[in-house]
Design a protein around this nucleic acid. Structure first.
Length: 499
RNA sequence: GAGCCGGUAGCUCAGCCUGGUAGAGCAGCGGGCUUUUAACCCGUAGGUCGUAGGUUCGAAUCCUACCCGGCUCACCA
């Protein structure tokens, strides 16, 4: 038995389990008829007066995990928790009889219990189920963390999220909010005629972003495959195919460092709209952000790291150059001169290898200097073409692309651009990237001939946008680490564990 | 990858500086208590002090290496 730590507490519970079993009580019954969820019961009956409750004689049947226990000789109080809430139960020898009461005395905190009984209010006014019978539904063998201080150890909380969820209500609520966020976003896009699609997460060529991919091998085909770093090139193929509004919400995988803002797999929303440009998507993102915030927070102000984020349109818009100078407080020359940008990087102790272009230096400065300052909702537009191999240039300024990034709470939340749909131009961009790759830049975008073929058939003018769901949840829930918004964040495996 | 901080009972923590062989609360166990709610009262049990070495008569405590986690930095355009 893999109960590795056969400590005294677990042995005691195993002994109780065997006792109950020997008395004919099945400690792991297959099913139980649950009549009521706890939350709605509390909502409906807690406002009622004790007298009204008694007169009504409301019979209920509930089930849940026992989270506390106060035994008093011939009676006991406990709290039962189900996914909708928590309610007190009152078990009395005279009500349930000696046999059931004797069994109940061997129930433990953490056990799943079914209770049938009548609602009443205690002296202190707490809505309570006076049990007529109690049924063991699952015997718990491991003790839960302490009732008062709970589970605080971050490592245990992340590794054993199931315990974290049992014990910490705020954690349950956070992940419920995350789920609702995705639902709200789906509804938002569905209502505007977008089609949700699924594209490959295993790709022969990892494209659509610049990042190191995870590599795997398909035995039957005898080929290497890469876990996708972005769905972009497949979603655009669908626009070629005639789906004018598409989106996908799912995981991207990047084989890079872990930090409070990076998990190797993370959730992206990407959406594409034909006949729209990046300005149209800016308006859409602005509307979406306000809508999502209202739906989830109930107002348009979000408290995040001590600041009040006001999600009220119109959001600020800066060009990259303006952001560097006006927000970042950098010398105006960094907008146009490589030497000035280089000097600014050196001043901020941003490590350089030498030979960086103005565009690359500006990218560094945006990330390091400006991004943390973009706390209120802000769009930054006009990125150098060099940093955006899949984006369309501006007609009057070919070295700049029609692109925006959206920042909130000092984090990059969204990245969008008018898509490059000129197949000849796209081929030339890929060739530039290939040259960089040949020069040793492993993150230069790979040449994707099938994608070019698709563009050659013709992709209508379109714009696309990616939104980092994890980071958005971090902002909305004021979470300091991405691990707090991912149910099972990646960690180094524990040593000596079974498969 | 580097620096700093942490790892002691199931959980939350103290003890470490100033070495003498481990403590509290909760949870557990036994007893009492038929409206308690951090229930209460009496009693009781529970530990490879992250791992492995070293120094020492003696190590949770000092030293070294390693493991795991957190934070910061680097990396991540």
């Amino acid at each position: 038995m893999p109960l590795d730590e056969m400590n005294e507490l677990i042995r005691k519970r195993l002994a109780k389990l065997e006792e109950l079993r020997s008395e004919g009580v099945e400690p792991y019954p297959a099913r139980y008829r649950v009549e009521h969820a706890v939350g709605p019961l509390v909502a409906e009956y807690d406002p009622q007066s004790p007298e009204a409750l008694e007169a009504a004689g409301v019979r209920v049947g509930i089930a849940g995990r026992m989270m506390s226990l106060r035994e008093m000789g011939k009676t006991a109080f406990a709290h039962l928790q189900d996914s909708s809430g928590r309610i007190q139960i009152y078990v009395r020898l005279d009500d349930v009889g000696p046999e059931v009461f004797g069994r109940f005395r061997r129930f433990d905190i953490g056990d799943f219990v079914g209770v049938a009984g009548v609602l009443f209010k205690t002296k202190t006014g707490e809505l309570t189920v006076q049990a007529e019978t109690v049924t063991l539904l699952t015997k718990s063998l491991r003790p839960l963390p302490e009732k008062w201080h709970g589970l605080k150890d971050r490592e245990t909380r992340y590794r054993q999220r199931y315990v974290d969820l049992v014990v910490n209500q705020d954690v349950r609520e956070l992940f419920q909010l995350r789920s609702r966020l995705i639902q709200v976003v789906r509804n938002f896009l569905d209502a505007r005629g977008f089609l949700e699609v699924e594209t490959p997460m295993m790709q022969p060529l990892p494209g659509g972003a610049a990042a190191r991919p995870f590599k795997t091998f398909h035995h039957a085909l005898g080929i290497d495959l890469y876990l996708r770093i972005a769905p972009e090139l497949y979603l655009k193929r669908l626009v070629v195919g005639g789906f004018e509004k598409v989106y996908e919400i799912n995981r991207n995988f990047r084989n890079e460092g872990l930090s409070s803002e990076h998990n190797p797999e993370f959730t992206m929303l990407e959406f594409y709209q034909a006949y729209a440009d990046y300005r149209d998507l800016m308006a859409l993102v602005e509307t979406m952000m306000v809508h999502v915030t209202r739906e989830l927070i109930g107002e348009t102000t979000v408290h995040h790291r001590g600041a009040d984020l006001r999600l009220e349109p119109p959001f600020a818009i800066y060009t990259l150059g303006e952001a560097l100078v006006k927000v970042g407080g950098l010398d105006a020359a960094v907008a146009v001169e490589e030497a000035a940008a280089r000097a600014a990087c050196a001043e901020r102790e941003i490590p350089l290898k030498g030979g960086e272009t103005l565009a690359l230096l500006q990218g560094f400065l945006l990330d390091k200097v400006v991004e943390p300052l973009l706390v209120q909702p802000t769009f930054v537009v006009d990125f150098p073409r060099e940093l955006s191999p899949l984006a369309r240039s501006k007609d009057d300024e070919p070295d700049v692309v029609e692109r925006f990034e959206f920042f909130l709470g000092g984090k990059e939340i969204a990245n969008a651009y008018t898509e490059l749909n000129d197949p000849l131009e796209q081929r030339a961009r890929f060739e530039q990237q290939a040259a960089r790759r040949a020069a040793g830049d492993e993150e230069a975008h790979p040449m994707d001939r099938d994608f070019l073929r698709a563009l050659e058939y013709g992709m209508p003018p379109a714009a696309g946008c990616g939104i980092g769901i994890d980071r958005l949840v971090m902002v909305l829930t004021d979470s300091p680490s991405i691990r707090d918004v991912i149910l099972f964040p990646h960690m180094r495996p524990e040593g000596g564990e079974e498969p």
